[in-house]
Design a protein around this nucleic acid. Sequence first.
DNA 1: CACTCTCCCTGAAAGC
DNA 2: TGCTTTCAGGGAGAGT
Length: 275
Amino acid sequence: MPELPEVQTVVNGIKSKIKNHKVLKLKKYINKLRYPIQKDLSSKVKDCKVITVFRRAKYIIINLSNNKSLIIHLGMSGRVIIVKNNKKIYKHTHICIFFDQNLVLQFIDPRRFGNIFVTETSLLKNNKFFRDLGVEPLSGQLNFKYLSNLVQSKKSPIKNIIMNQKYIVGVGNIYASEALFLSGINPSNIGNSITKSDCIKLVKAIKFVLREAIKLGGSSINDHTMISGKMGYFQNKLKVYGREGLKCRKRTCQSPIIRIVIAQRSTFYCVRCQK
DNA sequence: CACTCTCCCTGAAAGC
DNA sequence: TGCTTTCAGGGAGAGT
């Protein structure tokens, strides 16, 4: 579930709390999330210090002092919280990482679509989960030239293209619908039919919607709560996602928002504003 | 190669 | 009220 803004919010939240702290031990309460969990996960992180915490695509990367990186993907329902003294272990807490000063990182994931593993930091870019990742949408790598060149040869709907992590990372089902609304593009439009001016608008819209969501601490829905345990506020700003039947928020429009399914995913848009 | 479909899992919400 | 069905934000791997 969590898309780029939610993952970035988690990173921002845990970074200052665990940076320079030492891992005392790691405990797992389950052997498999989306994939089997490495048997020696604990020994790979034990006694190491956290050097940096950052995000790549929808992955949280924790670089350690032994030249290894701990990678966490939240899947659909994953959460990470940092607690003091570990008084409460939640029903779906699958991993606890114990740091010095009684700090504990809990990885909570009801649906168990998450992923956690350790790899040599130097091997990360060649790792199978990382080697095919596309450009970071908030970097200069996502620009008009990149997008227009990308869509030119594509025969799939524009929504699929911008959600495909091979091309652009971090954009998931919510922000894809939102960015397409902001740029006035129908999500079903085929890549090679997207005009130059649409590309300019779409690049701007993707960056805008992701930045706004990060500012508001990610848009959490249902069970996804922020690092502090507080929900994000961007969900109140959603223009189309989850608003089937409600009026388009563009003042001059007011048409009902439509829900369709593209590639087995709910897609929301305004028939009048998005051509 | 490009693209679509299925499936992993639990729980919330809707339907009856 | 309670039981059953539907649906959920990701994405790898199989299938076309």
